[in-house]
Computed example of a mutant assay.
Amino acid sequence: MKIAIFTDTFLPDVNGVAKTLGRLTKYLDQTQHSYIVISPKQTRKEISAGQIYRQSSFPFPLYKDCRISLPNTIHLKELIKQFQPDIIHVATPFSIGLAGLHFAKKYNIPIVGSYHTDFDQYLKYYHLTLLSKALWRYMEWFHQPLQRIFVPSTVTRQQLEQKDFNHLQVWQRGVDTSVFHPNYSSEIIRHKYNIKERFILSYVGRLAPEKNVDLLPTIAERLPTELQDQIHWLVVGDGPSKIHLENEWQKNVTYTGFLDQKEVANVVAASDLFVFPSETETFGNVVLEALAAGTPAVTANEGGVTNIVQDSFTGKICDGNQADTFIDAIQSILRNDDWRLQLEQNAIRYAHKQRWEDRFEELLYSYEFVLEESKSKQKHA
């Protein structure tokens, strides 16, 4: 199979979409499928390499970590004619995704897409809810021609069904258990960050409004005093909210900044709980990674994470933006050693069944089904 992937984010970007596509291309290499990736150029010096074709781009003014690309359509036209893909996969709905949609229509190539990000939810955190109606109108137009729309969770599928999206299929995510597992030394983390407290609680992800990270200091400061003194928080990641957090929350917390994957795995494995208040996740890869590392998760009752965490079995699901429910969950788990151990064991058993290889095989099978469907329609046209 020859697959052309059009995406507005790719490695070395640090987000769920880029990481997922990076793992997909690695799997395609291993299984000897041909592919090309059309993605943004991150720096002026960066050039196209191998099957990755970089397009000029600039930071999106409202969200610096996102880039707007300027696809070279003349070059891409020649590339598509030369490569002759069997199928096009558009992973994002913006500039490069639009180019993929254009070439699929122009050359009658079967096209699928994946829905990774709940942009509508992001708008409220940036006080842009007036744009919601226009955004949905555009998203409906963009996704209408796609022969499959892969969504990461049943929650996202239900949300899109209510918006009358068609051809939806759940394609969940996996976890790399060679990296995320419980067999790390917690002493390494305790020594590195000079942690003397009994418990370690961690958060991993972008430090940005849409991740609801402003709830973390509220939770920390409203825990009972005797428990506060037993907890050290590790906040892993970077983003626009970091400076505000550092100014507001300084007691028993370390901001590690960006860490590589193995360092993240070690932090999470050394933690007693993983606290993740985001309400905008379509899946929540970091939550599954925490479970694989043997760390129960305390999460919001919103988005795709509700398909990962089983309440009172692998963690606790809390009421959205309500700090009190997070506080109750954290207290109840930390004060019951036997239950915490059971949650850890359940988390490991569940997460270690979620293999990336199985997920990619599901995706390739769906590609083949779409190709057969397209051939059948052409025969009867």
Results as ranks from 00 to 15, higher is better:
residue 272 D to Q: 05
residue 272 D to M: 02
residue 273 L to D: 00
residue 273 L to K: 02
residue 274 F to L: 07
residue 275 V to H: 10
residue 277 P to Y: 00
residue 277 P to A: 02
residue 277 P to K: 01
residue 278 S to A: 12
residue 278 S to D: 11
residue 278 S to E: 06
residue 278 S to W: 11
residue 278 S to V: 11
residue 279 E to K: 10
residue 279 E to I: 15
residue 279 E to C: 12
residue 280 T to P: 08
residue 281 E to C: 00
residue 281 E to T: 05
residue 281 E to H: 08
residue 281 E to I: 10
residue 282 T to Q: 07
residue 282 T to D: 04
residue 282 T to S: 14
residue 282 T to L: 11
residue 283 F to S: 08
residue 283 F to P: 07
residue 284 G to R: 06
residue 284 G to C: 13
residue 285 N to W: 05
residue 285 N to A: 05
residue 286 V to Q: 06
residue 286 V to F: 02
residue 286 V to P: 02
residue 287 V to G: 05
residue 287 V to K: 01
residue 287 V to I: 08
residue 287 V to R: 01
residue 288 L to T: 03
residue 288 L to M: 00
residue 288 L to K: 07
residue 289 E to S: 07
residue 289 E to H: 04
residue 290 A to R: 03
residue 290 A to C: 11
residue 290 A to E: 01
residue 290 A to K: 09
residue 290 A to N: 03
residue 291 L to Q: 04
residue 291 L to C: 06
residue 291 L to N: 01
residue 292 A to P: 04
residue 292 A to Y: 04
residue 293 A to Q: 02
residue 294 G to A: 09
residue 295 T to Q: 03
residue 295 T to P: 03
residue 296 P to M: 07
residue 296 P to C: 10
residue 296 P to L: 14
residue 296 P to V: 05
residue 297 A to K: 02
residue 297 A to V: 03
residue 298 V to Y: 01
residue 298 V to C: 07
residue 298 V to W: 02
residue 299 T to A: 10
residue 299 T to E: 10
residue 299 T to K: 06
residue 300 A to V: 00
residue 300 A to H: 03
residue 300 A to T: 03
residue 301 N to G: 12
residue 301 N to I: 00
residue 301 N to Y: 01
residue 301 N to E: 01
residue 302 E to A: 15
residue 302 E to Y: 15
residue 302 E to D: 15
residue 303 G to V: 02
residue 303 G to N: 05
residue 303 G to L: 02
residue 303 G to K: 06
residue 303 G to A: 06
residue 304 G to M: 08
residue 304 G to W: 09
residue 305 V to I: 14
residue 305 V to A: 13
residue 306 T to P: 05
residue 306 T to I: 11
residue 307 N to I: 02
residue 307 N to T: 10
residue 307 N to M: 07
residue 308 I to R: 13
residue 309 V to H: 14
residue 309 V to K: 10
residue 309 V to L: 13
residue 310 Q to A: 09
residue 311 D to S: 04
residue 311 D to H: 03
residue 312 S to D: 12
residue 313 F to Y: 13
residue 314 T to F: 00
residue 314 T to I: 01
residue 315 G to Y: 01
residue 315 G to C: 04
residue 316 K to W: 14
residue 316 K to D: 09
residue 317 I to P: 04
residue 317 I to G: 00
residue 318 C to T: 07
residue 318 C to H: 05
residue 318 C to Y: 07
residue 319 D to I: 14
residue 319 D to M: 12
residue 320 G to C: 08
residue 320 G to F: 10
residue 321 N to G: 15
residue 321 N to W: 12
residue 321 N to Q: 15
residue 322 Q to G: 13
residue 323 A to L: 14
residue 324 D to F: 06
residue 325 T to D: 13
residue 326 F to L: 04
residue 327 I to R: 09
residue 327 I to L: 06
residue 327 I to G: 09
residue 327 I to N: 11
residue 328 D to W: 12
residue 328 D to I: 14
residue 329 A to Q: 14
residue 329 A to S: 13
residue 329 A to F: 03
residue 330 I to N: 02
residue 330 I to Y: 02
residue 330 I to V: 11
residue 331 Q to V: 12
residue 332 S to I: 04
residue 332 S to K: 09
residue 332 S to W: 05
residue 333 I to L: 11
